[in-house]
Nucleic acid binder design. Structure first.
Lengths: 344, 344
DNA sequence: TATTTTTATGCAATCGATTGCATTTTTGTT
DNA sequence: AACAAAAATGCAATCGATTGCATAAAAATA
């Protein structure tokens, strides 16, 4: 099965006995072609089912109408949803979205960026891996002049735009909510501060306690990975150390879930004895028998806005203006069953 | 910020005072170039940081090393996981994955295929939308000679390969499991038979009942959409009609979840009074307080195998052999809490 | 050394579309 | 009718890499 041979502007030019240049101009609605030939060309183009060869155009113009997205894993709900947002925003403009996974490994991330550059992408969206500390590979992309946009997990690099959520605010609101519900000793199981998001969530938690004159107790604060098992272990450790607390603010829904399991195993009732708030609004949180209160991140919107920032950026590049836009979205607290002291 | 100008084979050829043709041959390790110049070229290429221009190559060769994937929504766990499998299998071979969404709309699907063809993709993976009945747009892709692979949701089109799971077997095993646990009147809330997967699940359910000499009761069988709400409504309807049953096999985890909620609202205990089995092994199923028994589909594996079928196919195309490969994966029943009559 | 064979290299076309510059055709003016 | 101005079209190079065919250089043979 061989491929059908495609119709080119030369086929049209031969058929009409005019030059390919004129055909090209006619198709691009140039004012240097008479109306008569323009119509003729358009008609024959339609008749022959002419399709512009995107590759030839890309080679000539340098624009491929492809963008790359680099995420740790594409099947994590959050990232998949951001990608959905990007795709839906860019698709109507004729762009295609190429996806790459870093597997949370900085070397992979660098490799993906390199091959993306070689594919002559028009822009790159990236959420950095957990292991990304050195950012040379990212600066290289910037220095190539390719529009680059961070989303959610960013690094502070000059000349690179970003779309993130206000993790600080999300954590602050979540913690404040717990305080307002009457909880007094609030533990925080967070994530590795190498990722800004976890640092900011920690900061928000601390600020909320400070603002309500609650002393920070280092014994109540931990950093673990974002898994159910880690949540179980973390609570086990707190129990073993006999550290009392009446609420748990976790930087991860998975950790919150694990934590709740372990707490229940120890006979605590949620939310009566211990209130729990998670982070991310993972789909499972609302399907639990006692739906989990959590901080929602509007990932689809994040993707859409990242795409908009990209579109702005490429129009600015044309004007030879360099921009560095930082968009910070507000998170939303989904108040559900696990955080109202009186039960629901 | 203008883009860095790229190094081409002409830059190398000028530097070495040889022709670009020789440079090209040297880089491709042709045996028509002397070892001396080969080494020289390779050295200068490295020194100048030469990167082959993928676009020029694609224009010349007709191969882009891009493949397209069309799914209803990329942020549905199942599809995202299949895409992950495809990406991980093809990435080492130098391919990039372009994603497209049909939004469960056949017109969108057709449009996406058309723009993918125009992007000169090397192959297309597709899981059809719910509204896809007419398959002309898919046949067109096949007729263009582009390798095409269905995954999960397929249509019967000659000359198109597919990778699916054995929905019949999955349903048969799930139903048999319920029977073996002692449940006798098993309801089936399935999906629209326009999608083969739902028809096959229905068939498997029926076959299991037949094989165990249980009469089929049409009153216990429904077709609804795959949502929690639909599950609630379906059970409500059964209750209203006072139709007794002691087990529920749902073709969707979401429907199973909604069904369980409604059943509990009516005072039924799960699994003691009513056993429940879902389908898909959605992530939330294992996080429920009573984890849901469900049929797992190994989506990542499905993606990997689809990618392998694609790779085989393009090597066969070279040999001018036409193949139509149908791979059917076996599902796995995850036996959890909701289906053991004695409780767990 | 002369001639054939082998090996290495170059020329120029090709993949399609675009575009600056030159040329031809048409239109308008006197 | 003659000429200037304007409009329409064509030529050929360009974007990089590849490749069939021709030629040049080196090696092998007589």
């Amino acid at each position: 099965m061989r491929q059908k041979e495609k119709v080119t502007i030369y086929d049209i030019s031969k058929k009409l006995n005019i030059s390919a240049a004129t055909v090209s101009r006619a198709l691009n609605d140039s004012n240097r072609v008479s109306l008569k030939t323009k119509e003729l060309v358009l008609k024959t183009a339609k008749a022959l089912n002419y399709q512009q060869n995107a590759l030839a155009l890309a080679l000539k113009s340098g624009r491929t109408f492809n963008v790359g997205v680099v995420v740790p894993y594409i099947n994590h709900t959050f990232f998949a949803s951001v990608i959905r947002g990007i795709e839906e925003e860019l698709e109507p403009k004729g762009y295609h979205v190429i996806i790459c996974q870093s597997h949370e490994d900085v070397n992979n991330e660098a490799k993906q960026l390199k091959t993306l550059l070689n594919t002559h992408i028009d822009g790159i969206f990236i959420s950095v891996s957990k292991t990304t500390e050195d950012v040379k590979h990212i600066e290289e992309v910037r220095d190539e002049g390719i529009p680059l946009i961070f989303f959610d997990r960013k690094k502070d690099i000059s000349g690179v735009s970003s779309v993130t959520i206000n993790d600080y605010e999300g954590a602050y609101n979540a913690t404040t909510h717990l305080i307002e519900q009457g909880y007094k000793k609030i533990a925080h199981i967070g994530g590795d501060h190498k990722l800004q998001i976890y640092k900011h969530r920690y900061d928000g938690y601390v600020a909320a306690l400070n603002d309500h004159n609650i002393a920070i107790d280092e014994n109540l604060i931990m950093q673990v990975s974002s898994t159910v098992e880690a949540g179980i272990e973390a609570v086990k450790l707190l129990m073993k150390r006999k550290i009392a607390f009446d609420a748990l603010f976790s930087a991860s829904d998975y950790v919150a879930l694990g934590g709740m399991r372990e707490l229940r195993a120890h006979g605590f009732k949620i939310p009566e004895d211990i209130g729990v708030v998670g982070f991310s609004n993972e789909p499972f949180t609302k399907y639990l028998e006692r739906p989990l209160t959590t901080v929602g991140q509007t990932p689809v919107l994040m993707g859409q806005i990242a795409a908009q920032v990209f579109l702005e950026q490429i129009s600015d590049v044309k004007k030879n203006v360099q921009v560095e836009k930082k968009v910070v979205l507000s998170p939303e607290l989904y108040t559900r069953d696990t955080s109202s002291k009186k039960g629901s």
